[in-house]
Deep mutational scan, measured.
Amino acid sequence: KEFRPGDKVVLPPYGVGVVAGIAQRSVSGVSRAYYQVDFPGSRSKAYVPVEAPHSVGLRKAL
């Protein structure tokens, strides 16, 4: 896996977040693995496909 729990990442347009782990989510009846990204200071979460994280701009924070 490219990202691990605890990694600081950037996800446009949300900003800097932390990978909380990998979650299985069902979309249109198909279960897939997603990185769960939490954003400190907020209750917001984002789910990014493990198979294509760069397709939505997910990258490691510098």
Rank of each mutant, 00 (worst) to 15 (best):
V19L: 08
P5I: 15
V50M: 05
S28K: 13
P40Q: 08
G21N: 07
A33E: 13
R43V: 12
Y34G: 00
A61I: 15
P13Y: 09
L62R: 07
D7S: 05
R25H: 08
A23R: 13
G57K: 04
A23W: 12
P5E: 10
G15R: 04
Y47I: 03
R59W: 04
L62E: 14
V30F: 06
L11Y: 07
K1N: 13
V56D: 05
V19I: 15
G6N: 02
R25E: 04
G29A: 02
P5R: 11
P12I: 06
G15H: 02
L58T: 03
A33T: 09
V48H: 15
G17E: 00
L62K: 10
Y14A: 01
P12L: 08
P5C: 12
V50K: 03
S44N: 13
P53E: 05
Q36H: 06
S31F: 13
K8Q: 10
Y35M: 02
Y34F: 10
Y34V: 03
V56A: 14
A52S: 11
R32Y: 07
K45S: 15
S44Y: 15
F3S: 00
V16D: 06
G15C: 12
Q36V: 15
Q36P: 00
Y34S: 00
S44L: 14
L11C: 07
D38R: 12
A61Y: 15
K1E: 15
A46V: 14
F3M: 04
F3L: 06
G6V: 01
A33L: 14
V18M: 06
K8I: 15
V10N: 05
P12N: 05
H54P: 04
Y35D: 00
R43A: 12
V48N: 01
R59C: 10
G57H: 05
P40C: 13
A20L: 10
P53H: 08
I22A: 01
P49Q: 05
P40E: 09
S42R: 12
P49R: 05
Q24K: 11
E2H: 09
P5W: 04
I22L: 05
P40W: 09
G41L: 11
E51T: 08
R43C: 15
K1T: 15
V9G: 02
K60W: 08
E51H: 07
P53W: 15
V50W: 06
S42M: 10
G41D: 11
Y35F: 07
V48L: 03
Y47R: 00
Q24C: 14
F39H: 01
V16G: 04
P53K: 04
A52K: 10
K45H: 12
A33M: 14
D38V: 15
S55W: 07
K8E: 07
F3R: 01
R4Y: 09
V56C: 13
K60N: 10
Q36L: 12
P53V: 13
V18K: 04
S28R: 13
L62T: 13
R25G: 06
D7P: 01
Y14P: 02
G29D: 03
V10K: 04
S44R: 14
F3C: 15
S42D: 09
Q24I: 15
E2D: 10
S28M: 13
K60Y: 10
Y47A: 01
F39P: 00
Y34T: 01
V9M: 03
P12A: 07
A46Y: 10
S31W: 14
S26F: 13
D7R: 02
V16H: 11
G41M: 09
K45F: 11
P49D: 08
L11I: 05
R59L: 09
P40M: 08
P12D: 07
R32T: 07
S55V: 09
G29H: 04
V9A: 01
K45I: 12
R59M: 09
V19Y: 04
Q24V: 13
S55K: 12
F39A: 00
S55N: 08
V50I: 09
V37M: 01
Q24P: 03
E2V: 12
H54R: 07
G57C: 07
V19M: 04
K45D: 03
A61F: 15
V27Q: 07
I22G: 00
V27K: 09
E2S: 11
V56R: 08
R25W: 13
V37E: 00
Q24E: 10
S55H: 08
G17R: 00
A52L: 07
G21H: 06
A46S: 04
P5V: 15
V10C: 12
R59I: 10
V18R: 07
G6Q: 02
V18D: 01
S42G: 12
V48K: 00
Q36A: 09
P13Q: 05
V18S: 06
K1P: 15
L58F: 04
A23P: 02
E51R: 05
A33Q: 12
R25C: 15
G17C: 04
P40V: 10
D7N: 03
A52P: 04
A33N: 10
E51M: 07
G57I: 05
V18H: 05
A33C: 12
Y35A: 00
K60A: 12
S28I: 04
D38Y: 14
R32H: 08
G29Q: 03
R59H: 13
H54L: 08
A20I: 13
Q24N: 12
K60H: 15
V27G: 04
I22Q: 03
G57Y: 05
S55L: 13
K8V: 14
V37P: 00
A61W: 15
R32W: 04
R59A: 06
A23E: 12
R59P: 03
V19N: 01
R4G: 06
G6E: 00
S26T: 15
R4K: 13
G21V: 05
E51K: 05
A46Q: 11
L62S: 13
G6R: 02
A33W: 15
G15L: 02
R25D: 04
V50C: 07
V48A: 05
K8T: 07
P53N: 05
V37L: 05
R43K: 13
H54M: 08
V10S: 06
R32A: 15
P12G: 04
S28G: 14
F39C: 15
A61V: 14
S28Q: 13
K60R: 09
A23T: 14
A52R: 08
A20Q: 10
V9Y: 08
P13M: 07
S44H: 15
G41P: 13
S55M: 11
G29C: 04
E2G: 10
Q36W: 06
L11V: 05
R43L: 12
K60T: 08
A20R: 12
Y14D: 01
A20S: 11
V50N: 00
I22P: 00
G41N: 12
V9K: 01
I22N: 01
G29S: 03
R32I: 09
G17T: 01
V10E: 07
V18Y: 12
H54F: 09
I22K: 03
L62Q: 12
